[in-house]
């Protein structure tokens, strides 16, 4: 769910917009390295995939269901920089084309869901992947879980700085982290299952494996040339 207009006061929303622009500019530079010349269509189609994946319902209980946020998935599949860009475009299209998420809150939403969630997911993935000596599923689950908490953390900070609502900061923090720990479990499970499914058929498509296992002969650079074969 995206923050609407007016929920966080204007100075904080505008500051978040500036932070978002800076983070996107950095990601544009970084993505050039991640994606080489395949950049635009790969990042674009991944944005499409995230958007479509968010529409898929995962049944929880008694008719309720949850869905993916996708930041961790994007970071693992196409890399943190390209992931930030893909998530940013998803959020921008949702705001500009579907009226989902306030126009002046776009910076807040990008900071939380595209920047913090994606970057935190990548760091955690990399750490856990190395710590567990390449346990892909465990690292993906951890990344999925943390991505949600990082987004919630971003919201809590924004709320403390510019919340327009008379609720105690600690109450909001406790509620946000409580609820999002639960959501994070779902995100962890979906992220791990989807990454495992992709790695099962085309490990060469998983950026994190290409990057972190570059010595592994199973994921050789030659696989990248499958493109046109």
């Amino acid at each position: 769910m995206h923050i609407p207009d007016g929920f966080i006061d204007a100075p904080v929303a505008i500051a978040a917009g500036a932070v978002a622009i800076g983070a996107v500019a950095l990601s544009l530079r970084g993505a050039r390295r991640e994606l080489t010349e395949t950049s635009a269509p790969m990042a674009g189609l991944t944005a499409v995939f995230i958007f479509a994946a968010q529409m898929v319902n995962f049944p929880v209980a008694a008719g309720t269901s949850g869905h993916l946020i996708g930041a961790a998935l994007a970071a693992i599949l196409i890399g943190p920089y390209a992931g930030v860009l893909a998530m940013t475009v998803v959020l921008s299209v949702q705001a500009l084309v579907f009226a989902d998420g306030g126009l002046t809150a776009l910076g807040l939403n990008v900071v939380n869901l595209a920047v913090l969630a994606t970057v935190a997911a990548w760091w955690v993935f990399r750490g856990v992947f190395r710590l567990t000596r390449g346990r892909l599923v465990v690292a993906a689950a951890a990344a999925g879980f943390v991505s949600v908490l990082a987004a919630a953390g971003g919201f809590v900070v924004e709320f403390l700085l510019g919340g327009t609502v008379p609720l105690a900061g600690d109450t909001v923090a406790a509620a946000m982290f409580g609820v999002h720990a639960f959501i994070g479990i779902g995100e962890a499970a979906i992220t791990a299952l989807v990454v495992a499914a992709v790695a099962g058929v085309r490990p060469d498509l998983v950026y994190a494996l290409r990057r972190l296992r570059s010595s592994d002969p199973a994921v050789s650079p030659a696989a990248a040339e499958k493109v046109t074969a």
Binding site: A53, L77, I190
Partner: peptide, 19 residues
Amino acid sequence: ARSLGTLFVRTYERGERVH
């Protein structure tokens, strides 16, 4: 989730063909 994995592979492969 498996079907989403398949969807990603197909989507990414389309990206390759588009490229």
